[in-house]
Each structure stands twice: as structure tokens, then as C-alpha cells.
Design a protein around this nucleic acid. Structure first.
Lengths: 127, 127
DNA sequence: CCGGGGTATCGACACTCGTCAATCCCCGAT
DNA sequence: ATCGGGGATTGACGAGTGTCGATACCCCGG
């Protein structure tokens, strides 16, 4: 817990003596804790170079479906690692996995990236 | 290094015999390694509940500038932790720090969030 | 029925990251 | 000049994560 905060902020010491100037809990726009955790969890799935490249590769070959063995070489990662990243992306709702026979084809969920982009705080709040 | 990949994928063995079916490096839209690393580094700054709430708080109080002591209470974090998160956000280019006297006021950089949202692979690429 | 090959899972390891207590710095006020 | 207080930095620790090798699964072809 934080202590102190006994000094007044200059130019704001007018309202009340009880409010010491830092407006302790008067801030608005506070994103809920669960909402922030959920969004952070979703963005953690994107905050990785390998996964971003996976998305770029899948997005760039939207017509042709992409399997795991297509990604190991361009990414320079081992097959278990690529499979792990794909699982993370599928679990986050960015990709869909369609297993036909032995091969697993991945395609990106339309609108998933846009939903994340729109959920960022302050995107539609200019000044 | 990955090995094998000797079998052909069904229905795609038509282009060339030299390409064994998984089209080793024929994928397009491959984001550069540095570019992916930079974007991932930027998104890592956003992939945290505390930092997302900081941005929401700053964005929700655009008119009133926000100092560190304003954030410790709503976030429930200690002052060093809040300062650390603010440093990360400033370093990532999402916030600007303006120190007037003893107090440090933070305001968000307009367009920074939108730039990240636009840099996501496949945002403007619907099918 | 058996073998091969693509894929997913497991265990382990190294590295990064979020958090706090303690401390230091720096500016304004007295 | 001295004091007080807001903010940044340091050091440390626990949790989370990316990576790989080894292995298990499972479907298809012969």
C-alpha cells in the first residue's frame, strides 16, 4: 500500500483540504481488472516475433492453406516449437486448425486482429 | 534444424518436382525478422494488465494530466512498480513524460496506439 | 497388417519479466 | 542551507515463457 501523499499539487489546492491534490480514486476510464487481464492475455499471444511472422505468413497466403511443415523452414524453428506457437494462436482465437488426414492446415480467423486493434484503450479517443 | 519433409502434399504436387510439396520458402508475406522483433517488442509493452490500465486511465483523463501518485491507488501497485510500467510505456513511445517541478505528468502520444493497430499483419487484408 | 511420415505432447533448461523493499536523486519550501 | 516529499533507480526473487530433443499419436499407403 502506498503512504504519504500529503503535499498539494500546485494550482490545484483549491477544491478541498481533504483531497490532497492527487485525486486518489477520481480517475475515469479505468479498465476493469478482468478486462485488462483478458486483453493482456490476448495480446501476449501477439507479442512474439515468431507468432507475428506466423500470422503474416498465413495472412499472405490466404488462398493457399498452410500446414506446419510450411512454417518450420521460413521461421527457422523446430517443428515442436512451431506447433506450440500455432497452438497459442489457435487458443487465442487468431487461427483455426483444420486437420485433413495427416496434415493440419491453418487459416486465420477474419476480424480477430481487428477486434484486438479496436479493444486497445484510446484508439478511438483522439485528444 | 528440421529434417525430413519428403512426402508430397495431396493435390499440390503439380508445380515442380524439386519442391517437395510443402513449398519450403515459397510463402509470401513473410515479415522480416527485425520488423517482427520490433513489433513484438512494442506489443510486449502492451501485453500487460497494469500497463493497459495505465493507458486506459491516461486516455480517460486526457484533459487532466496524470502523475504517478494518481495511478498507484487505482492500480493497487507500489510506486516503483508504477514508475517501471510508465518507463516501459514511455520507452515504447506510447506516453510522454513531462516533469514540472517535483511532479511528473504523463500524457499519451496521439496515434501511437493506432500505428500499432495498423501494423498488425492482416488487419487491412480481409480474405 | 505393417511401416512411414506429419503432428502433438512431455520434460527440461535458460532467459525474460513483473513485483516489491530499500535507497538515491532532485526540486521546492521554509 | 536544511528539510520534506515525489519520483526514478537498484537489487533480488518468484513466476512465466520460448526453445529444443525425445517421444507418443494417428492416419494413409502398400
Amino acid at each position: 500500500m502506498n503512504s504519504s501523499r500529503t503535499a498539494d499539487r500546485p494550482g490545484l489546492d483549491l477544491v478541498d483540504v481533504g483531497t490532497p491534490g492527487c485525486s486518489p480514486a477520481e480517475l475515469e476510464g479505468a479498465m476493469g481488472v478482468e478486462q485488462a487481464a483478458a486483453l493482456a492475455h490476448t495480446m501476449k499471444a501477439l507479442a512474439d516475433p515468431a507468432r507475428l511472422r506466423v500470422l503474416a505468413l498465413v495472412a499472405g497466403n490466404e488462398g493457399r492453406e498452410v500446414c506446419v511443415c510450411d512454417l518450420t523452414d521460413p521461421l527457422g524453428l523446430s517443428q515442436p516449437t512451431v506447433s506450440h506457437h500455432l497452438k497459442v494462436l489457435v487458443d487465442a482465437g487468431f487461427l483455426t486448425r483444420e486437420k485433413r488426414g495427416v496434415w493440419a492446415y491453418f487459416s486465420l480467423v477474419p476480424g480477430a486482429l481487428d477486434a484486438v486493434a479496436a479493444a486497445l484503450p484510446g484508439v478511438g479517443t483522439p485528444s
